[in-house]
Design a protein around this nucleic acid. Structure first.
Length: 366
DNA sequence: AATTTAAGCAACCGCCCCCTG
DNA sequence: CCAGGGGGCGGTTGCTTAAAT
């Protein structure tokens, strides 16, 4: 049993409003107001429209001082900053822009502003992060649903994170994302491996051992998401490696991965012939420390970082902001999509604190 | 010039908050 | 205190127009 509809669906007109309908509605409301009852309004005027439809038409097009199109650079900045801070709370965003409606801003964001912000090239870069983190694209490409780094992020949060990083990169070329010196360090043995390869003029993929710590694209695909995440970690970002396995599991996992990744032949080659410049102990160490899951920088234990630690170098002191990316934010603070109004159950201080943090960043979108 | 594809946008849908009786 | 229903909201649809082929 659903609830009763707000109007007689069979007897209401749908679709675009005619000038006559607009005129009727506008004239009536200007003279009498809405009477605080939208549902009853169309009957009074003699309009065959749903009350909600009347309300929408009035709020979005007929009421005075509505602006359409021609968004200014300043408005763009405000929309973007607020979107990053609070997500798709269009009514709140609209409240900061006199004359703009939530619907207009929503459409503007979805069709233009988002594209303006995320250029083609940067989009590709960010997709890599999403892929590596188990984002939707990657899920679709390999069907994996579990073990994603950012699986606690909602789509909206991911998008905001993406935008935040994008803007961070544009604004600060020395930020974490653009600064290799901030990227995680290789272990001494891993450095030695790479140096040895370079010294011998070998391509990385010519070494079966190297494949242990840097699987190729299709190898990663075969191995699934876990490897993919770490592959990305090895070259670009610190990411979180969720270790759920027991040591025995890890051992078996390692065997499976080695069998799949390097192949029986390569493993035999490594084990029987060794690798030039490396002792058997070092080879074992490399294999063991990389655990088959190709954990380059987080072999085990202490080097692991918590989920959001990986972003703490985005800009120092702003780690608090990152809480707003998480699902906790979306679910815990907004039991519904529209609980952000003046009657919100969120303490005002929290709201203001959140609001000012990113808003103060004053992103320049040019 | 005709057709297809993409973009823009108005309007609808359905959920949920909260007021009222 | 509770249930019903109106208002408000975000997500989505589908129509129109513009651009590309």
């Amino acid at each position: 049993m659903g609830r009763a509809p707000c109007c007689d669906k069979a007897n209401v007109k749908k679709g675009p409003w005619s000038p006559e309908e607009d005129a009727k509605l506008k004239a009536y409301i200007e003279e009498n107001g809405t009477g605080n009852n939208w549902i009853a309004l169309p009957q009074k005027i003699g309009l065959k429209r749903c009350g909600k439809s009347c309300r929408l038409r009035w709020l979005n097009y007929l009421r005075p001082n509505i602006k359409h199109g021609g968004f200014t650079e300043e408005e763009d900045n405000i929309i973007c900053s607020l979107y990053i801070s609070i997500g798709s709370r269009w009514s709140i965003i609209a409240a900061q822009l006199p004359g703009r409606t939530d619907n207009d801003i929503k459409n503007y964001w979805n069709t233009r502003l988002k594209k303006k912000l995320l250029g083609k090239r940067k989009q590709t870069q960010m997709n890599r992060l999403l892929l590596a983190s188990g984002g939707q694209d990657f899920k679709e490409s390999n069907g994996l649903e579990e073990n994603s780094l950012l699986q606690n992020l909602s789509n909206s949060a991911l998008e905001r994170l993406q935008l935040h990083m994008q803007l961070q990169t544009l604004q600060n070329p020395l930020s974490f994302y653009n600064n290799p010196s901030l990227w995680p360090k290789l272990t001494p043995l891993q450095q030695k491996l790479i140096q040895t390869l370079q010294a011998n003029g070998l391509n990385e993929n010519q070494s079966p051992l190297y494949a242990l710590i840097n699987p190729s694209e299709n190898q990663a695909h075969e191995l699934g998401q876990k490897v993919r995440i770490n592959e990305f970690a090895s070259t670009n970002f610190k990411v979180n490696e969720v270790e759920k396995s027991t040591p025995i599991d890890e051992f078996n996992n390692q065997k499976n991965v080695l069998n799949t990744n390097v192949g029986q032949e390569n493993m035999r080659e490594i084990q029987t012939q060794g690798v030039q410049g490396f002792t058997q102990l070092e080879i074992d160490d490399l294999i063991l420390n990389n655990k088959g899951s190709i954990v380059l920088n987080m072999p085990s234990g202490n080097q692991q970082i918590s989920e959001f630690d990986c972003f703490k170098e985005i800009d120092d002191g702003s780690r608090e902001n990152l809480a707003w990316w998480s699902n906790d934010f979306d679910t815990n603070t907004t039991s519904s999509s529209n609980s952000w109004g003046s009657s919100s159950n969120i303490p005002q201080s929290t709201y203001e604190g959140m609001y000012h943090q990113d808003y103060a960043l004053g992103y320049n979108l040019q």
